[in-house]
Simulated scan of single mutants.
Amino acid sequence: MRVLISGGGTGGHIYPALSIIKEIKQQEPDSVFLYVGSSKGLEADIVPRENIPFQSIEVSGFRRKLSLDNLKTIYRFIKSVRESKKMIRDFKPNIVIGTGGYVCGPVVFAAARLGIPTLIHEQNVIPGLTNKFLSRFSSAIAVSFEGSASFFNHSTIEITGNPRATEVAQASRKEGRASLNLPLTKKIILIVGGSRGAKAINLAFLEMINQLPKLKDCHFVYVTGDVHYNEIREQVEKKGASIEQVTLKPFVYNMPDVLAATDLIVNRAGASFLAEITSLGIPSILIPSPYVTNNHQEKNARWLEEKGAAKVILEKELNGDILYQSIAQLMQDENELKKMSTASRQVGYPEAAHHIYQLMKKIVQNEKH
């Protein structure tokens, strides 16, 4: 199998693509891959580290208001389609897969124009502009949430889940606790502000830190992000909080295992992260980022809240007292925590990557006939 895959801009588009590649390799070890992204996106660094051949095109997104920049965007798109066609002709893929981000727009569009089978994957509840555009040309659409299907007018839409869930579903609770050096008797509350941290979550955590001893059976693991680590550590020490009850980490490299060891998580509402926590059935308190396109994180979070798997706190309403009370109510109500865990697991798709692989195979076989 020869597979060309494209997606970029953020980890939410890149890591699902890498999970799909990993699944295809497991099923068909002789497969050959080409990843097309932007030289300015995170994929330019992440993908080559995985020893996956990488080529780049330059493309930008449309502004939602009338702007001369949109004329430049149209020019870049047309140029990128032409470059993508050349890459596709040279590589000769059996299928082209897009996982979102502006960069996959010209790539999947070019493939469709050349008669190559195409598949797009949508991670969020509300589809992005690129996937809405590409849905008119794709052979099939895979979505992470059942609520996403209604936004597409297409004959072949399958709810597969997010392929990132597959990798996390195999994680070890025991190894996660061992890596944190924590006893089995403690309940772990994981707080994650994202790889670059989140100022609002940082402030709320610092405001509530002197209340943590009230939750005697709980241990807090806070992933601050590299940028904020030293500042947060200094603030924690100044407040005289018991470091024995808090583990601060700038970054966690074995996040799947740490997630497997977690009893409650506080985090943003990026689609890939939600796929990971639901694959393990983790109850969550979600604080969606208000700084993302189309406010998609709040829509992701609200969907999970409606299913009974999460509680949502908007950033504008967040403070230390609200965050502490939300955590305390759940940690002191075992039945509610179990109900949320069950609901979380019910909406998870631990076999997502394999479902996407099966859909990919079906598309390629249909095209042959």
Rank of each mutant, 00 (worst) to 15 (best):
I116S: 06
G176F: 10
T10V: 06
A309K: 03
L114C: 01
N70T: 07
L180N: 04
F91R: 06
L248R: 03
V3C: 12
A112E: 08
G308H: 03
S344V: 01
A110K: 00
Y349A: 14
I201L: 13
G308T: 12
E146G: 01
T156V: 12
F77P: 00
G240L: 09
S326P: 02
A204F: 01
T185N: 13
I78F: 12
K25V: 03
G193E: 06
L114P: 03
A269M: 03
Q27G: 01
F77Y: 12
C218G: 02
N294A: 15
G308F: 02
Q332R: 14
K214C: 00
S135H: 11
I14K: 05
I188E: 01
E50L: 02
K238Q: 14
K187W: 00
H296C: 00
Q329R: 15
N335D: 13
S155C: 04
T293Q: 10
E276I: 09
G281N: 08
T185A: 11
E83R: 14
E146H: 07
T166I: 06
Y229H: 15
K368H: 12
Q346F: 05
L42S: 04
I74T: 09
H121R: 06
G270N: 07
P163H: 14
H296M: 10
F220P: 00
K368C: 01
E175N: 12
M331S: 09
K92E: 13
Y324W: 12
P106K: 04
T130H: 02
E367R: 12
Y35T: 02
A140N: 09
K239Y: 10
L203K: 15
L68I: 13
S80K: 04
V81Q: 07
Y349F: 15
S67H: 13
I95W: 10
V246G: 00
M208G: 01
I5H: 04
P290I: 01
T99P: 05
I322S: 00
L274N: 14
M255W: 04
A352H: 10
L34N: 05
I120L: 11
T156I: 10
P290M: 11
L71H: 07
L203S: 12
Q325T: 08
N267A: 14
S155R: 15
L314Y: 06
S39G: 01
L264C: 04
G225A: 11
R113E: 10
N131V: 04
